[in-house]
């Protein structure tokens, strides 16, 4: 391996430094590389900012590089070197998705790095292998889950009946399927949520028109639930508590904006329905 040749005879190899005992040697550049990868994956799969910063810092410090510092907001990661002639790295995050499994596995890696004895190439390979397995549920499963979740919520809100269950299932399923269809055009989050609200309003009212035993309120609220920004809200609050005020503010603002755009879409559907003179 080329890295081993470069490291022969350096201070790191000859000195039995106690904190590095279980670790394969890595240069500072390589450590920054892996730390940046961990941060990117975590932030892109929807982890809180404090978790991203904590994981990256713990990784850098476990190699003894105490002069690397991380600054992270929901849209950018900056890994800076405090030492003179140090280089820094910046990564701009534009698209974020949610993948709890990836967060769990990266967390496991960052706690077990010492035990698994991964070197640079091994860590890269592990990360690539894990990334290939990300997003285990396909579009069909996600749409079905959205429909099922909506249906269960509609039953939770009182006046439980099988009609509400079926109608809410249809509404949630159709809204999520529509989002997955327009996903390839990369709409901005505002238009995505607007479309979700619009389709929920139209489908729910159609269900109520076709079958008068359905409750419009329950169906709509149940179908709205998968699109409410619960993750952004929870993460924002946790960021506040961890002291990352900037990320907390922006996450809460994101949650508010998303909720507002769903409400605008839904209101648009209801108003248009009214103007059309339909019941």
């Amino acid at each position: 391996m080329p890295e081993e040749k470069a490291l022969n005879g350096t201070k790191q190899n000859t000195e039995p430094a106690s904190p590095l005992s279980g670790l394969a040697p890595m240069t500072k550049n390589q450590v920054m590389d892996i730390a940046m990868d961990l941060g990117k994956i975590l932030l892109k799969s929807g982890a809180e900012t404090s978790r991203v910063e904590d994981t990256m810092m713990r990784f850098c410090r476990s190699y003894g590089y105490y002069d690397l510092n991380v600054f992270c907001t929901p849209t950018v990661i900056i890994l800076g070197d405090e030492s003179p002639r140090g280089k820094s790295r910046v990564f701009r995050v534009r698209w974020r998705a949610t993948d709890l499994g990836l967060i769990m596995d990266i967390n496991e890696l960052s706690y077990n790095f010492r035990r698994w004895k991964l070197d640079y190439a091994g860590a890269k390979r592990w990360l690539q292998g894990r990334l290939a397995l990300s997003h285990p549920y396909g579009n069909t499963a996600v749409c079905l889950a959205s429909g099922f979740g909506s249906a269960c919520f509609a039953m939770l809100l009182g006046s439980a009946s099988i009609y509400n269950f079926v109608a809410a299932f249809l509404t949630g399923f159709i809204a999520m399927a529509l989002l997955k269809m327009v996903n390839s055009f990369h709409p901005t989050p505002f238009w995505e949520n607007f479309l979700a609200g619009l389709s929920i309003g139209i489908v729910a009212q159609t269900c109520c028109l076709l079958y008068p035993y359905c409750t419009l309120e329950n169906i709509t609220v149940g179908a709205l639930m998968p699109f409410l920004p619960g993750l952004a809200f929870t993460n924002g609050v946790r960021d506040y508590m961890a002291g990352d005020l900037l990320s907390g503010n922006s996450r809460i603002a994101e949650a508010g904006l998303f909720a507002l755009s769903i409400a605008i879409g839904l209101a648009f559907a209801l108003k248009v329905w009214d103007w059309g003179g339909l019941p």
């Binding site: 993948d99 709890l100 990836l102 769990m104 997003h135 996600v142 889950a145 979740g149 993750l231």
Partner: peptide, 24 residues
């Protein structure tokens, strides 16, 4: 009991929506 069952399944559906692995 019914409330528990529906909340359970709704939460499981959300776990799938957030791409959580099967064991959680």
């Amino acid at each position: 009991l019914m409330a528990f069952a529906f909340a359970f399944f709704a939460t499981v559906a959300f776990g799938v929506l957030f791409q959580g692995p099967k064991r959680i």
